Simulated assay, not measured.
Amino acid sequence: MSAREVVRAYHDARFRGAVEEAAALVGEPFSFRSPFISSADPAGHLAGLEGFLRVVTEVEMISELYGEAEATLVYDVHTATPAAIQRTAEHFRLRDGKISSIMLIFDAAPWQPMAAAIR
């Protein structure tokens, strides 16, 4: 599968709540970094997904950039929270057809008071 196919399959599975499907696209070694968590566990970085998806009302893709072994997605996550819309950038690196690293970038300030409630 191409970088585009792997990353879009991961993105779509994650926002459907299909944790096992998303985790199957992640290889080892793996690293994940976001303003809230860091993880080397291919499935562990998805642990709080269910709580987060309870507040997501829509995901609106803004831009998709693909290289041979990397990708960057920019999208808005619409939520039923005081944070409302979260602009998000996500950079992926791939190795051997699997995602080897994800760097998730967003302004975490609006989420600080709500973090415990959505975990």
Rank of each mutant, 00 (worst) to 15 (best):
E68L: 03
G44W: 12
L53A: 11
D76Q: 11
F15I: 08
G44I: 11
L73N: 07
F32C: 00
A71G: 06
A22V: 08
V74R: 03
S39R: 00
V56H: 03
T72G: 02
E70N: 13
G44S: 05
A47C: 05
A43R: 15
Y66L: 03
F15T: 07
V56D: 03
S34H: 12
E20H: 13
H78R: 12
F30Q: 00
E21G: 08
V55K: 07
S31I: 10
D41C: 14
E60A: 13
A13R: 03
S31Q: 06
L53F: 09
A69S: 15
V26D: 00
S31R: 14
T72A: 07
V74E: 00
G48E: 01
A40F: 15
E58T: 13
Y75K: 01
R54K: 15
A40P: 06
L25F: 05
D12L: 04
G51E: 08
A24P: 03
L46D: 04
F36A: 13
Y66I: 00
G27L: 02
S63N: 13
V74P: 06
A71T: 01
G48L: 08
G48Y: 14
A13L: 04
R54N: 11
A71C: 00
A23L: 08
R33T: 10
A18W: 14
Y66E: 02
V19Q: 02
D12Q: 05
R54D: 12
I37D: 07
P35W: 10
M61V: 15
G67C: 00
I62E: 09
